[in-house]
Write a protein that binds this DNA or RNA. Sequence first.
DNA 1: AGAAAGATCTTCT
DNA 2: GAAGATCTTTCTA
Length: 195
Amino acid sequence: MVDNKDIQLLLKNNVSNNFFLRHPTFVASDLIGKILVYKTAEVLLAGIIKETEAYTEDDPASHSYLGKRTKRNQPMFDGPGTIYIYQVYGMHFCLNFSCEKKGVGSAVLIRELVPLFGLDIMKKNRSVVDSELTNGPAKLVQALGVTPSLNAVSYHKSPLFVTESTEKTYFNRISQYSRIGVSKGLNVKWRFRGE
DNA sequence: AGAAAGATCTTCT
DNA sequence: GAAGATCTTTCTA
């Protein structure tokens, strides 16, 4: 938990332009412990990123496998930091940030947050107990009140962005696991989790 | 607590 | 027509 002064400080430490211009496994790992912020005229919400997954073009579990573009996955190719929000199972939405240079289809899925600021609004958006607010990719999207209207928006111009933590590392270590909910690509440990 | 089913949209076969 | 980067509710033990 942080107070108002802390959160204002956090807003000033945006990650650099080159942050997403790397292989998604590096980005996914480095995102652990950083702060995801959603700031609009109405709300200011933030959470510590706890779990992520990387997806690439040569990855059979990825929407961008073999570099194939579709109407849905286009934001994955639109340059580093482009927001990619897709719908899963017909009813939920998941948030990703595109990685690597424009034209390469890769991304990092945000899977879990530790709620940090704006808990009251998150609760209103989800009506569940605190521990269930943002512990899943579709849950955190709902808690933040993010909608697909942000899909394909560049991270630099969006109300949704990532900042450095002002504290030293929030987690003791980062563990790697196989990804969740996929039937292919289970040979790589591209799920990163702060413990 | 753990398993199963239901909700219902996009993509690929 | 089936499967999927999921979550919630309901059932069973």
